[in-house]
Design a protein around this nucleic acid. Structure first.
Length: 294
DNA sequence: TGCGAGCGTAGATCGCTACG
DNA sequence: CGTAGCGATCTACGCTCGCA
């Protein structure tokens, strides 16, 4: 799809791009080396720009390509750089300062989770490993929160596909769960109807009582958010091709979460109480004993 | 070749929205 | 609540092309 993108030419927007396609110029390689296509002046810039784009793709220079393609079309970069992608989602404490409590990452290497008070400090390094970030509303929420929290040691990706805006352009507004349902990507019963505020409550329950079960549920929810993004990205990409009537353009296979459910179970079962959790547990037990003494 | 009309892109502003 | 991206809307500009 990237090689069909002509909107990276200055002076070419959606209309002229469609026009090029209609005239049989389907990919960069179809653009004639000489002769008038868009007019003298534009052709000059076009050939220069297409050469740059080809070189950038040759080098697998995501940053360079992302700078050429208008942001709203960044979804077109997806198939070429899918192996460099990380899908992630954060939960926060719901306070004014919005400190992250749990962060789930899903990429080629599998699932990872970062938890406040345990390994949250390792998150920036893990994020830096992947140059394409995929989120839902992450450009407005997740990334600003993390940047605020970690400061400038938090990395910047070469490109960031925010599925909220990709979906909206495909006529699907609303939240992540709503869109999942619309696309038949619903969650199993025990994960249905859980939302971001529940995540705040689960964290508070865990903190207040050392309730590891609450943490496990929270982490499971968070992990679901991360890998559901992968299926959503696949479906949204395919839909965007439908929208452009690009029947010949190859679709991507839609990720099935079955592949990772074992890892989800393993990750949440591995979660035990920390020393701090055990102290909290001891304290609330003592309080309980006091309460029932007389 | 030179002019003006018309198209489409780009910039600027505003209000809406989804996140926990 | 704060954040930030985008569509809608409007304006301005650049370019192409038709016409003589």
């Amino acid at each position: 799809m990237l090689r069909r993108t002509f909107q990276l030419i200055p002076g070419v927007g959606p209309w002229k791009e469609k026009d090029l396609w209609a005239r049989g110029i389907h990919t960069w390689d179809d653009f004639p080396d000489n002769g008038s296509v868009l007019g003298q002046k534009l052709d000059e810039g076009a050939r220069r720009r297409l050469a740059l784009a080809r070189e950038a793709l040759e080098r697998r220079d995501l940053k360079g390509l992302a700078a050429m393609v208008p942001p709203r079309e960044h979804w077109r970069l997806y198939p070429e750089f899918a192996r460099d992608a990380v899908y992630f989602d954060i939960e926060t404490d719901g306070k004014q300062e919005q400190a992250p409590t749990v962060v789930a990452l899903f990429d080629d290497a599998g699932l990872r989770v970062f938890i406040q008070g345990r390994n949250m400090d390792e998150l920036p390094e893990a994020m830096a490993e992947r140059r394409l970030w995929v989120t839902f509303n992450g450009s407005c929420f997740d990334v600003p929160v993390l940047r605020e929290y970690f400061g400038k040691r938090f990395p910047t990706p070469d490109a960031h596909i925010d599925l909220r805006f990709v979906c909206r352009r495909l006529g699907m507004g609303g939240g992540l769960k709503e869109i999942e349902d619309k696309l038949g990507l619903g969650r199993p019963p025990h994960m249905k109807g859980v939302n971001g505020w529940d995540a705040v409550l689960l964290w508070r329950a865990y903190l207040a009582r050392g309730d590891v079960e609450a943490l496990r549920f929270l982490v499971e929810y968070n992990l679901y958010d991360s890998f559901q993004l992968r299926s959503l990205m696949d479906k949204a990409y395919n839909r965007a091709l439908d929208d452009l009537n690009l029947d010949a353009e190859p679709r991507v296979p839609v990720f099935e979460r079955g592949e990772v459910l074992y890892d989800v179970s393993r990750l949440i079962m591995e979660l035990g109480p920390t020393q701090r959790d055990l102290r909290v547990l001891e304290r609330v037990r003592a309080q309980d004993r006091d309460l029932h003494q007389d």
